[in-house]
Computed example of a mutant assay.
Amino acid sequence: MRKLIWGTAVVVVLGIIAAVIFTPKSNPTDFDYASLPVLGKTDAPVKIVEFGDYKCPSCQYFSQQVKPQLEKEYIDTGKAAMYFMDFPFIGPDSTTAALAAHAVFHQSNDAFWKYYDLLYKNQPDEKTLWATTDYLVQLAKDNKLDVDYDKMKTDIDKQTYIKEIDKGESTAHKANVQSTPTLFINGKEYTGDFSNYGQLKEAVEKALAAGKAE
């Protein structure tokens, strides 16, 4: 009886070990970081990707309340870099604003992040239609964004970068993104509360520690 018990125990332990070893692990999402707007150093050990929609009120909150804390503690210190991908799902304004942001990005990465902040700072009510070409270009002019405004207008009207926006949306669907903002940290979706900086900080710290351990 004793041998039977021990034998059973060994089988159970081996089964647990096998389950741990052979259970498939969720693979990180593979981002083409080099093609995305980046805030911070490209060689930062932690890469944070935000899927966002310029018409989304929650994204506005993230840009104004959470992103500045990330910048101060992690991005400005070289520990993390932040990237942006479009998930324009709310309405036509979402896509038009994304076209404007891409038009700016392809002239200047630094100007993109200034424009990113401006779009959210000046975001009207979600039910209001506002993202016209004239409005989006005038916003850049009024804030003296260092870009070619005529080229920006042409790129919006001709939808020059619509394929990049479609790629962002496709990537979001493949990664099972359900809402904005959704964050990925080193390719893995952050499932905590994006508005809780303490939780987000803990996730970034874990990513930093994991990088040092490798």
Rank of each mutant, 00 (worst) to 15 (best):
K79C: 05
G91T: 11
L145S: 04
G192P: 09
T171A: 11
A203P: 11
D148V: 06
K144D: 13
F184A: 05
G211K: 15
Q123E: 14
K55H: 10
E189K: 15
A210V: 11
L183I: 08
G211V: 08
E164K: 14
D76M: 10
L136N: 04
K212D: 14
A172H: 05
P45E: 00
T160V: 08
T180R: 08
V12Q: 00
V66K: 03
Y74T: 09
D125L: 12
N122Y: 14
V104S: 08
F51S: 05
P124C: 09
K141M: 07
G91M: 08
K163L: 09
P57R: 03
W113D: 02
K121L: 14
D146S: 13
D43T: 09
T132P: 07
K79H: 08
S179V: 05
M82P: 03
M85N: 07
S195G: 13
D146A: 15
S195V: 01
E71D: 14
G7Y: 02
F194T: 13
T180W: 06
Q178M: 10
K141S: 10
P88C: 07
N196F: 07
E214A: 15
T180I: 08
G91D: 06
P57M: 01
L14R: 03
F62E: 03
P124Q: 12
D43R: 01
F194E: 03
Y116I: 08
Q178S: 15
A81C: 13
P57L: 03
G15V: 07
I156L: 03
H173T: 12
T23H: 10
A210T: 11
F184R: 08
V10K: 01
K201M: 08
A209L: 13
V104P: 03
P88E: 08
L70M: 15
Y161C: 06
A81D: 10
D134F: 05
I156E: 00
D30M: 06
H106T: 08
V13I: 15
V204E: 10
W130S: 07
D148T: 07
F112T: 01
T180E: 02
I75Q: 09
D32E: 15
N196P: 04
D53E: 02
K153H: 01
L4H: 06
Y197F: 15
L129V: 14
P124M: 09
D142P: 06
K121F: 07
N196A: 11
V11D: 05
G192Q: 10
K41Q: 13
A80E: 06
D193I: 06
I17T: 04
E202V: 13
D157G: 02
G15H: 00
Q178W: 00
F105D: 02
Y74L: 08
N143K: 07
A18N: 00
L136C: 08
I165G: 00
G7H: 03
A207P: 09
T133V: 12
T191I: 05
A103W: 03
F51R: 05
P68N: 10
E202T: 15
K127G: 05
I156S: 00
P68V: 07
K47V: 01
A203W: 06
D43E: 11
Y74D: 08
A207S: 10
V11L: 14
A103E: 03
D142G: 11
D76F: 09
K167M: 07
G40T: 04
A19L: 14
K114N: 12
T128I: 14
L129F: 10
A19Y: 09
